[in-house]
Design a protein around this nucleic acid. Structure first.
Lengths: 114, 114
DNA sequence: TCATTACGCAACCATGAGGTTGCATGTCTG
DNA sequence: CAGACATGCAACCTCATGGTTGCGTAATGA
């Protein structure tokens, strides 16, 4: 197995939880709000979404577990900020999937036509 | 709301199920196998994964529901192939999220420093 | 024709995820 | 200090999801 394939496998392994975290609509919405509005408190985020504050907290923890967000204490409130590194890894994963697929299709066509 | 924001919202809405589909480890693995090996039958895909054939079938259906794969009948076996369009949309979503976030950070820094 | 192969369908099960309510705790602010 | 505000913690509920087993059926090939 080549070094490239190892890197791919590692990226795949790292990406699954990220995709899972982004897979929930409410969570994806929270991510979008964090993007548009910058770092925000839990209560402020809760205003943009139609679930309880506690539900929002759970989602934020889920995002943190996936490495997508990070909290920071600030007085009596907790400010959540996005973490873009894992996001970049996930993007690379999608890139590679598309790329590999295109190559596979090309090889298949060559095989059929040749 | 600008046209760009509408497009973003639509992309977000369309991307959540895709991310959810990619979020399961087994499913992501199947996608990877489909990439590496091109279109394959269910039984062949089942060999690469440590769950039952029926479980694999369910996962493939889930991928199809998310618009990520499509089956094609071929004699007594069913060949599954990847569908890259939705994948591209998901990639664009990630791009936009990263981009928006970077802009937000830049604005924030300008505000703090100015 | 008959065994084998590849698959579909349905019932069933266990677990975890998303959500809620209720209450306790810590932090401002007047 | 007292009330208001932001959050943490825990119990609880419901339902979708990932998985299994069992069996029926269509295509294939010797």
């Amino acid at each position: 197995m080549s070094r490239a394939r190892n890197a791919t496998a590692a990226r795949l392994h790292e990406s699954a939880p990220v995709f899972a975290a982004l897979g929930d609509p409410t969570r994806l919405r929270l991510v979008a709000r964090l993007c548009a509005g910058g770092p925000q408190s839990i209560t402020r985020l809760s205003a943009d979404v139609d679930v309880t504050r506690q539900a929002v907290t759970k989602h934020l923890v889920a995002l943190a577990d996936a490495g997508l967000a990070r909290p920071r204490r600030e007085g009596r409130e907790q400010i959540w900020a996005l973490e873009t590194r894992r996001l970049a890894v996930a993007r690379q994963t999608l890139d590679e999937i598309s790329g590999q697929w295109d190559s596979a299709i090309a090889r298949l066509r060559a095989f059929v036509e040749g």
